[in-house]
Write a protein that binds this DNA or RNA. Structure first.
Lengths: 296, 296
DNA sequence: GACTAGCATTCTCGAAAAATGAATTGTTGC
DNA sequence: GCAACAATTCATTTTTCGAGAATGCTAGTC
């Protein structure tokens, strides 16, 4: 049993079909079929049920899958651990929420790059849910997500505390005015795609304001969001710092919320198990010193 | 990076040489050289220091080794887990101390085989230290060892309670007589090889009796040990049940010890992490019922 | 009920990778 | 300096792997 077989198996399990797995692995179907068959022969039991619309895992396949994932993750970590001589260097994949990336990260990344120029840092922005998944499966080394997070395989350290505020167009100078001036069902909610924690918060706030069925408008970028708010397309929920440092700051109104809704903690998460990757350690160290500055 | 490369690497690390590793892997040196070189090229750093008497791990190699071992163990477990449909069957490797194997295991194994005839059980006897290592590295599925054991990756359940007794030749009818009749430095201690817990206990007892520098005589088998005691070559420490059921029971004297020295618990250990292997579960179930009988 | 689309499997051929065995280099101990 | 041992290099054979075309199977559609 070779690792490539295991990865082929995992790809088929994930995509649910030989054809799709082949595409993902940059190869042809016949190849994938053969690898899967070889694996089944070696283990001595079928791993998939074949039907016209693809393949689904058998019991044996389901039992094998977690091992396959752990082995794949281990092999990635192994290489990093071997290469890692204690000096932070090499690739480091960090994930972040869009809002954190916009305001909090620039000074932090600058500091990190100054201290550890040998690290090739890459930054991916996504929703909290996607980021957690990314860290767990090993495609990200660490990520900034909205707390709270409780997962046995993740270590979380508090990175930033944010105050979430409701943002509307300039013309609504207070929450009361906004509530009076919008239709019964409430203003349009400008939200990020599903998986974003701030979106969940906004849903809660809307329910409390009596706007459970207000219209939703989904946007992909932070700038687009603030721009739409300024144009009075609707309202949204964002960290105060994000709005204040935005170029559109003058064109929007900020409405504070009660502490229970407003307080949100940004956590830095990393996998708890395994070797401490030096580049990641260096990053965490930067975060620590920065954090102290913020706390002071 | 393939699993076979990892296993080649581990074999070289363990044996300390290409030639010996090649022999172990049933291949030729040149092959091993190439696999190791390929692995080093892939990781981008040397894993071994070459010198005239073989190879030793570099820092990178040392960091890689634990990953290699875990990956090898995982791949073994993965196959078992996939094959395991809940019905106990297939191979099951159990380890045991020699003494436990002699007295406690025969009825247990008979019971197990009656209930789960499809399991191909293999038994290896070794010292507690070796058995713990064997279970941790995955060459054993479970083992009977002398307690106490505390290791995060092991789960231990109490299997038997033994009373350790000092055993001497027939002619010494009491401990007092033995102490009077032997030279100042004490009788010869008949011991198993290093790693045996009973040996450590015997050392403690000898220190307390004022015989810290008594002669040691190392033996490999239980029968040899009792035979030597009967022939008055020295004394040893064994569970009471072992001596009583031995064929030489009539030719030796049993001397009870204080509770602190006498009490020893035999634990059944297995890896805590990962899939519950059905055959092992079945074995643990047998142990449980048997244990109840003994306790009654 | 034939037709079609989608998907997995089978087969063959060529390329790449791994294993082999012999020759080579280098070190150590006598 | 020679014998013994160990790793590397190289040419050769063997095995495995991947691409591509053809085949077979199933379900949904007209």
């Amino acid at each position: 049993m070779e690792l490539s077989d295991i990865q082929t198996f995992a790809a088929v399990a994930r995509t649910g079909g030989i054809t799709r797995a082949a595409e993902e692995l940059n190869t042809v179907q016949s190849n994938v079929t053969q690898r899967v068959k070889a694996l089944e022969a070696e283990i001595g039991t079928p791993l998939f049920e074949r039907h016209s619309r693809g393949m689904t895992l058998t019991g044996a396949g389901k039992r094998l899958l977690p091992y396959a994932q752990r082995m794949a993750a281990l092999s990635r970590e192994a290489v990093l651990a071997a290469r890692d001589d204690g000096e932070p260097k090499g690739p480091l994949a960090i994930g972040s929420m869009e809002t954190t990336a916009a305001v909090r990260l620039p000074p932090l990344l600058a500091d990190f790059h100054r201290r550890f120029p040998a690290v090739r840092l890459s930054l991916r922005t996504a929703t909290t849910a996607d980021l957690v998944a990314g860290v767990l499966e090993g495609t990200l080394d660490g990520a900034f997500v909205a707390g709270p997070i409780a997962h046995a395989d993740l270590t979380a350290t508090s990175a930033f505390r944010e105050e979430l505020v409701l943002v509307s167009a300039q013309r609504w100078s207070s929450l009361a005015e906004l509530r009076a001036g919008t239709p019964e069902s409430g203003p349009t909610a400008l939200v990020f795609r599903t998986g974003c924690t701030y979106r969940q918060r906004l849903e809660q706030v809307f329910v409390e304001f009596g706007w459970p069925s207000a219209a939703r408008f989904e946007l992909g970028t932070l700038d687009g969001m603030i721009g739409c708010v300024a144009a009075d397309m609707g309202v949204t929920l964002l960290p105060r710092t994000v709005v204040e440092r935005s170029a559109m700051n003058g064109s929007v109104s900020i409405h504070p919320l009660s502490t229970s809704h407003a307080r949100v903690e940004t956590l830095f998460i990393q996998r708890s198990a395994g070797h401490q990757y030096s580049a990641l350690q260096g990053f965490a160290a930067c975060l620590k010193t920065d954090d102290d500055v913020i706390a002071a």
